[in-house]
């Protein structure tokens, strides 16, 4: 987990002034956000879905500009948005994740079915440890709690897809297949969550039908 670096002390930065923040949401994202805001009594309630929009718009993670943009669009303070984003593990704050996020369930059933052995295999194959990203920016591996798929243990979630039960061979095949897939699945996951947040009626409005 990210902790404060003492070396950060020199040349203390200040938070960007509103006029210094670049707004990077696409037109579609702005429309989606407008629709989402209709769901709630105030803007504060829309922080979580708006962070998902931001995670999609900023390529699968939340750089500080994304936090600032969400804060401005929702009239909240930067610190509050950052606090919310860092609380939830599915938002990736600060550093980019790989295009494909491999989440290995290591809870009881998966553990008994060899989740850690499987994880070791993936880690040695990709040459990374928990929370790290391959140098080519393709994969990030994370350990997660129960994925609610014990019948398929050991189970992996790769962005928006569950895979299980898996063994070394099937994992190798999955990774090979993903390598050829250039569009980041983390962005797809964020988009799917945003779409799920929007009611169907809203989606029609957003797409202009």
């Amino acid at each position: 987990m990210d902790v404060i670096q003492i070396s950060d002390l020199r040349g203390r930065p200040r938070a960007p002034r509103p006029e210094e923040v670049n707004l990077n949401f696409s037109e579609k994202a702005v429309r989606e956000l407008e629709q989402l805001l209709n769901h709630y009594p105030d803007k504060k309630s829309a922080i979580l879905p708006c962070l998902w929009i931001a995670q999609r718009e900023y390529g699968g993670y939340l750089p500080s500009e994304a936090i600032a943009e969400v804060a401005l669009r929702l009239d909240r303070s930067y610190a509050e948005i950052e606090g919310v984003a860092t609380f939830y593990t599915m938002y990736h704050v600060g550093h980019p994740t790989g295009k494909h996020l491999i989440e290995v369930c290591t809870c009881l059933s998966c553990h008994l079915c060899g989740a850690y052995r499987l994880a070791d295999h993936i880690k040695s194959k990709l040459g990374i440890d928990w929370g790290e990203t391959t140098p080519d920016g393709m994969f990030t591996i994370e350990e997660v709690e129960c994925l609610d798929a014990c019948d398929r243990a050991p189970v992996l979630q790769i962005s928006d897809q569950y895979y299980g039960p898996v063994d070394d061979k099937t994992v190798d095949a999955i990774l090979e297949k993903l390598k050829s897939e250039t569009s980041p699945s983390t962005v797809r996951l964020a988009d799917e969550i945003v779409q799920a947040q929007l009611h169907k009626r809203d989606q029609e409005k957003v797409s202009g039908n």
């Binding site: 987990m1 990210d2 902790v3 404060i4 930065p13 938070a15 500080s64 936090i67 600032a68 303070s77 930067y78 610190a79 509050e80 948005i81 950052e82 606090g83 860092t86 609380f87």
Partner: peptide, 15 residues
């Protein structure tokens, strides 16, 4: 605001 969660929860400013 508080960043992070659980035992690592820290009051701090934005970034």
């Amino acid at each position: 605001a508080f960043r992070f969660r659980g035992a690592m929860m820290q009051p701090s400013t934005f970034e």
